[in-house]
Simulated scan of single mutants.
Amino acid sequence: MPRVLSDERRDFVNAIGEFCRRECGTKEQRDKLTAHGAESHNQELYTKMAELGWLGIAVPEEYGGAGRGMTDLCLFLEETAYGRAPISGFSTTVVAAAAYEKFADEEQKRVVLEGVVNGRVEAISMSEPGAGSDVGALTCRAERTEGGYLINGQKTWCSNAHIADHVLLVARTSQEESKHQGLTQFMVPTGVEGLQITGIDTMGGREVNDLYFTDCFLPDSAVVGVVGQAWTQLMAGLNLERMILAALMLGTARRAFDDTLDYVRQREQFGRPIGSFQALKHRIADMATELECARLLVDDVAAAIDAEPGRVFAREASMAKLKCTELAKHVALEGMQMMGGYGYATEYGMESLLRSTVVSTVYGGTSEIQRDIIGRTYGL
């Protein structure tokens, strides 16, 4: 089914597609931009996108952005993922920037939001060794001291901290009856004394980090929003984070599908293209149908968020994240199976798509957590 877009949005999508084909459309280009897959973010490419005005798509106009909504943001994320642009820093940047926009003071907003427009990267840190899905169990402490706070503790799985200007830290400022109370957000410069950032090697390359805080002093001006209210502030950003991941994985799933389709059309066995065999033809048909369902879901939820920007669409955003991440993993696995040994070869790229999709069902709230959230919205 053709996507119905305004002329402006169609031109926007086409421009992104052309840029990706020109700048990172070949394996040779992507290898050069990512140190043969070891890095997921290329700052030079990212800066080019900033100069085109794309990185400020969701930033308010008063800070130099375009002030557009969820639909345009999702289109950008989907198309850059489809084009395999190595700009992993953008997703965490948008999540962090939205929190600053809602809760930060004017100086913090100016520094972060204007930085986003100009190609700077931001990160956000919640997870700890003992607090993953259960964010309320975090123990990294921010203790009151003269003129500010001393931060002590460890954070983990912090995406893009090593390339970010700041980390939006969630730390415990008090112990309350509810574990979700007494949490506070802080704006932490990544070069501050007392913070050590250590990369975690993963099968997806260098993207996530451990953060070690040792008597790291932050002034009162580093507090973002209201002391003790970080949980409420985090909940206000659920739509955005889940839709970002849904759009990214929708684009990645489309790429895996198209690469698989090209292969089964061209690869011949037993005297004909392997895609003409019913076993593969039906799997292609099923994947194409599921992709269309996922696209319609993302488009519909994004439009609903644009229509009611102050409302939290917990059920719908979780559905979009669940559907797109699970589908992307499925399509990449099917692509690898249909491509046989070539699916494992780095030359063809399906193995890297599989690596990026497998982790998508874990970060940003696991598939199990998304199902639990959806179930609770039905009173279960």
Score class of each variant (00 low, 15 high):
residue 176 E to N: 13
residue 119 G to D: 06
residue 62 E to Q: 15
residue 22 R to P: 03
residue 140 C to I: 02
residue 283 R to K: 11
residue 336 M to H: 07
residue 235 M to C: 14
residue 254 R to P: 04
residue 357 T to Y: 06
residue 290 E to A: 14
residue 274 I to H: 01
residue 330 H to D: 15
residue 17 G to Q: 06
residue 83 G to Y: 02
residue 231 W to E: 14
residue 358 V to I: 15
residue 77 L to D: 03
residue 239 N to F: 05
residue 343 G to Y: 02
residue 76 F to S: 12
residue 329 K to G: 14
residue 305 I to M: 02
residue 43 Q to A: 03
residue 159 S to I: 11
residue 359 V to W: 01
residue 265 R to D: 13
residue 325 T to F: 00
residue 119 G to Y: 00
residue 143 E to K: 12
residue 232 T to E: 09
residue 156 T to Q: 05
residue 201 D to V: 06
residue 74 C to F: 09
residue 128 E to Q: 05
residue 141 R to P: 09
residue 27 K to E: 15
residue 256 A to G: 15
residue 367 S to I: 15
residue 158 C to M: 10
residue 219 P to T: 08
residue 160 N to H: 01
residue 128 E to S: 09
residue 249 M to Q: 15
residue 321 K to I: 11
residue 168 L to G: 13
residue 296 L to F: 08
residue 309 P to S: 10
residue 62 E to Y: 04
residue 87 I to T: 08
residue 353 L to Y: 10
residue 94 V to E: 02
residue 237 G to L: 06
residue 69 G to I: 10
residue 293 C to F: 09
residue 86 P to R: 02
residue 124 I to R: 11
residue 179 K to S: 09
residue 280 L to M: 04
residue 243 M to H: 11
residue 208 V to D: 00
residue 19 F to T: 06
residue 29 Q to H: 06
residue 265 R to Y: 04
residue 240 L to P: 00
residue 123 A to R: 02
residue 292 E to D: 15
residue 241 E to H: 06
residue 354 L to M: 11
residue 64 G to I: 11
residue 233 Q to Y: 00
residue 61 E to K: 14
residue 75 L to I: 03
residue 72 D to S: 14
residue 208 V to T: 13
residue 248 L to S: 08
residue 141 R to G: 07
residue 175 Q to T: 12
residue 87 I to H: 02
residue 184 T to R: 03
residue 107 E to R: 11
residue 378 Y to V: 05
residue 209 N to D: 08
residue 334 E to Q: 13
residue 69 G to Q: 05
residue 348 Y to G: 03
residue 214 T to I: 14
residue 29 Q to I: 13
residue 38 A to V: 10
residue 12 F to G: 04
residue 14 N to F: 01
residue 322 L to E: 07
residue 224 V to R: 01
residue 187 M to I: 10
residue 157 W to P: 04
residue 193 E to F: 03
residue 228 G to F: 01
residue 102 K to N: 15
residue 369 I to F: 01
residue 297 L to R: 11
residue 13 V to N: 01
residue 223 V to P: 10
residue 357 T to G: 11
residue 163 I to C: 06
residue 142 A to L: 09
residue 39 E to P: 01
residue 117 V to H: 06
residue 303 A to H: 08
residue 59 V to H: 13
residue 59 V to K: 08
residue 303 A to R: 12
residue 378 Y to M: 11
residue 81 A to I: 07
residue 47 T to F: 02
residue 86 P to G: 06
residue 288 A to Q: 12
residue 48 K to Y: 04
residue 329 K to Y: 10
residue 204 G to K: 08
residue 268 E to P: 00
residue 171 A to L: 01
residue 170 V to E: 08
residue 123 A to S: 14
residue 15 A to T: 01
residue 243 M to R: 11
residue 256 A to R: 13
residue 176 E to F: 05
residue 346 T to Q: 04
residue 327 L to D: 07
residue 95 V to G: 13
residue 235 M to P: 11
residue 366 T to R: 01
residue 136 G to M: 13
residue 108 Q to K: 14
residue 294 A to K: 07
residue 337 Q to I: 04
residue 36 H to T: 09
residue 39 E to A: 07
residue 324 C to G: 12
residue 294 A to D: 10
residue 259 D to R: 08
residue 283 R to E: 12
residue 350 M to W: 07
residue 132 G to F: 01
residue 321 K to Q: 10
residue 138 L to N: 00
residue 34 T to D: 02
residue 94 V to L: 02
residue 7 D to I: 04
residue 132 G to L: 02
residue 30 R to L: 09
